[in-house]
Design a protein around this nucleic acid. Sequence first.
DNA 1: AACGAACTTGACAATCATTTTCATTAAGCA
DNA 2: TGCTTAATGAAAATGATTGTCAAGTTCGTT
Lengths: 129, 129
Amino acid sequence: MSSVGIRSTRQRSAVTSALTELNDFRSTQEIHEYLKERGDSVGLTTVYRTLQALSSAGEVDAILREDGESIYRMCSPAHHHHLVCRSCGLTVEVEGPTVEKWADSVSAEHGFSSVSHTLEIFGLCPTCS
Amino acid sequence: MSSVGIRSTRQRSAVTSALTELNDFRSTQEIHEYLKERGDSVGLTTVYRTLQALSSAGEVDAILREDGESIYRMCSPAHHHHLVCRSCGLTVEVEGPTVEKWADSVSAEHGFSSVSHTLEIFGLCPTCS
DNA sequence: AACGAACTTGACAATCATTTTCATTAAGCA
DNA sequence: TGCTTAATGAAAATGATTGTCAAGTTCGTT
């Protein structure tokens, strides 16, 4: 009857394995390029669709870079944020349970639901200071 | 000799007055449209440039919507964050001394200086839930 | 093992926000 | 008033993302 299946295809496993290997935030275009160079070519459109599907399924993290481009990465066990050097790009992952709790309570206070948040810290790293 | 002036023009005051009147987050395109309808037409390119200039001068708040489009609004006096409804765009300003302190200490821990941060919370407001 | 409905794919065209180009216009100082 | 230079804006360019649709696959069913 109604099997609303998500099928497993070569393309899908290619994308997830690329994400696993890269283990870092990458844009759709970069992942597409990576797969092409590796000889495991997947259509650009398909990479877009797959990443979006994985993202809304909660299987990958998606963040919006400052220039508006979306970048994806295999979901890491814990939700965290980034401390980015404005000059050299060095990125440090930081966690903030305090912040998470704060965001949740503020949202609840105002009656918001289905909340998500973005938090990035920019500055100059020790080397670039 | 070297007069590195920022000149005051009709277009610039049109953009700032539009921002003041609207008093809400709007996209560049929306502001451009608003000015055109009001008969105080300003080129789209100029609106883009003006908003970016105002933003980097710290005179307006700029945030990146989840779809990647930039939206701007007149700066309010104190540093604060936004709780934005994904559906209707309703924006609530929220303050978070906790978050500020957390961001500062995390940065210090990693030796970062000149730090700034962005934090936006997206969700569904009570009406849109 | 073959069938077939529904899901997937991918080349290409279409969108759409934003940027670049560059010739024209206008601020503001001397 | 004149002149230097910033500012403007129309049009073209860019670049990421989405839509289209015919052809290819998957997988439960026969």
